[in-house]
Amino acid sequence: MFRRIEQTGSDSVTVRIDNREFQVPAGISVAAAVLLCGFRKVRNTPVTDSPRLPYCMMGICFDCLMCIDGVPNQQACQVEVRDNMAIDYQRGAAELLQQE
């Protein structure tokens, strides 16, 4: 649903989104990477479990909260992609309870 306007041959990094490997341009945000790779959700909401995608891309809305390298509640639009980064959906707020 998103594409790069120019393939300028800039550096790329390898990230794992939901356990699948993707090459994405270096320097972009995690939220941008997830959109570029065609994902249609980044998380499910704690209240009604409904899917969400990044909404404001500027750190205001907190709709892009994801689990990045094992740390939940990260604003994906404010974090830059790094090589070998593990990016996962954030499922609700009660993940710790479910693991018990």
Partner: peptide, 18 residues
């Protein structure tokens, strides 16, 4: 998912060329 702000579109364009 799929609804976002125009500002988000601008950030994607300016910061990532997306």
């Amino acid at each position: 998912p799929g609804v976002m702000t125009a500002g988000a579109g601008q950030v994607l364009l300016k910061a990532s060329g997306i």
